[in-house]
Amino acid sequence: MNWPLEAFLSFLAAGAFGVVFNTPRRTLVSCGLVGMSGWLIYRMYYLVSDDSVQATFAGAFAVALVAHILAKKFKMPMIVFSIAGIIPLVPGSRAYNSMRSIVENNYLEAISFAADALMISGAIAMGLVFAEVLMQLVFNYQAKRMQKKIGMTRN
């Protein structure tokens, strides 16, 4: 596979979705970067493990992590950055294949594709939630350390 090309295309796709969702103009490039990091980590994990559910989890986790960091930096809601990055991970092709199988009266295949799509959507959700919990723990820890520091200087 062609890494620079995929990086460029995922960057462009996430940026284009940023335009469709009307993210603030100065964050468009960052949105593209979030989408790129999510997609590259998804592809890398997929190449190593050959398991699209785990790979999607890793990709969504990366998206949410980067989005949280950027949200802190720009002082904007996290949703501004995460939405465009999640889109490339959505299991569009599996949902499509499942529907196509239903139309062709091939119900067994349809169920297997649909189950796959469902698992991948679940993996996206888990990745987002795990990253959020992790970031909250990190921020709480930082805040506590900051409070301790201020308390110590006061004494």
Partner: peptide, 26 residues
Amino acid sequence: LDTIIIGSVMPLVPGLLITNAVRDLM
């Protein structure tokens, strides 16, 4: 046919709704 349809459908996918739904539930 398949990849053309999947690629073209992508801008219509309800990505924001899915993410928001999950985060609200959690």
